[in-house]
Amino acid sequence: MSFYVYLSGEIHTDWRDEIARGAEAAGLDVVFTSAVTDHDASDAAGDHLGAESDGFWRDHKSSKVNAIRTRTLIEQSDLVVVRFGDKYKQWNAAYDAGYCAALGKPYVTLHDTDIVHPLKEVDSSAMAWAQTTDQVVEILNYVTRS
């Protein structure tokens, strides 16, 4: 039986690929899903609903269209990994973690030590805090082995 893992968070590094490669190398039966990671495509998700002259309303439409995918895949997952990078503030990742907490969906945070303090509330509801993608793979290895 496959274990479904939703990968949430920053889109500027290859952390998703690192986890997928690690899980494959370990022979884990894990299916990974994610939000749309093409930034321009994500920003334009609602453009087909009509042009907007105000950036707020363009973002509003696109966030709702993106949420169809995000919420559905989070709800269908067995575990969510929420990655916070150091380059940008990932407000969407914090929102995803809060959504998981509200649903009672287990999640693991993945971030460096220098942002422990600003993420204390997010981390407090996580099942684990990982600092490396290898640690995430080890968690997946443990929870999927019988």
Rank of each mutant, 00 (worst) to 15 (best):
M1Y: 03
S2I: 01
Y4M: 09
V5Y: 03
V5K: 02
G9H: 03
I11S: 04
R16F: 07
R16H: 13
R16Y: 03
D17N: 05
E18G: 05
A20S: 14
R21E: 14
R21T: 13
G22H: 02
A23M: 06
E24T: 11
A25G: 15
A25E: 15
A26N: 11
G27N: 06
G27W: 10
L28T: 12
L28I: 13
L28Q: 06
L28N: 10
D29G: 12
V30R: 02
V30S: 05
V31A: 08
V31F: 14
V31T: 15
F32V: 03
F32G: 09
T33Q: 05
S34F: 02
A35F: 01
V36R: 08
V36E: 14
T37D: 13
S42R: 05
D43C: 02
D43H: 09
A44C: 08
A44G: 02
G46D: 00
G46R: 02
H48M: 02
L49P: 01
G50S: 12
A51Q: 08
E52S: 06
E52Q: 15
S53M: 09
S53Q: 10
G55S: 12
W57V: 07
D59F: 02
H60L: 14
S62G: 07
S63T: 14
S63G: 14
V65A: 08
A67P: 01
I68A: 15
I68D: 14
R69H: 13
T72P: 00
L73H: 13
I74E: 05
Q76H: 14
Q76A: 15
D78W: 05
L79N: 04
V80R: 04
V82T: 10
K87C: 10
K87N: 15
Y88Q: 12
Y88D: 14
Q90F: 06
W91L: 11
W91Y: 13
W91E: 10
N92D: 14
A94H: 03
A94F: 08
Y95C: 03
Y95P: 03
D96T: 07
Y99R: 10
C100H: 04
C100M: 02
C100V: 04
A101V: 00
A102G: 10
A102L: 12
L103I: 08
G104A: 05
K105W: 02
P106T: 00
P106E: 10
P106F: 11
Y107I: 01
V108G: 04
L110A: 01
D112M: 04
T113L: 05
I115N: 01
V116A: 03
H117L: 11
L119E: 03
K120P: 02
E121N: 09
D123A: 11
S125M: 09
S125T: 14
M127N: 02
W129A: 07
Q131T: 14
Q131E: 12
Q131S: 12
T133Y: 04
D134L: 06
D134N: 08
D134F: 00
D134P: 01
Q135E: 15
Q135C: 00
Q135Y: 08
V136A: 03
V136N: 01
V136L: 07
V136E: 00
V136Q: 06
V137M: 11
E138V: 11
L140A: 02
N141D: 13
N141M: 02
Y142N: 12
Y142I: 11
V143T: 12
T144N: 09
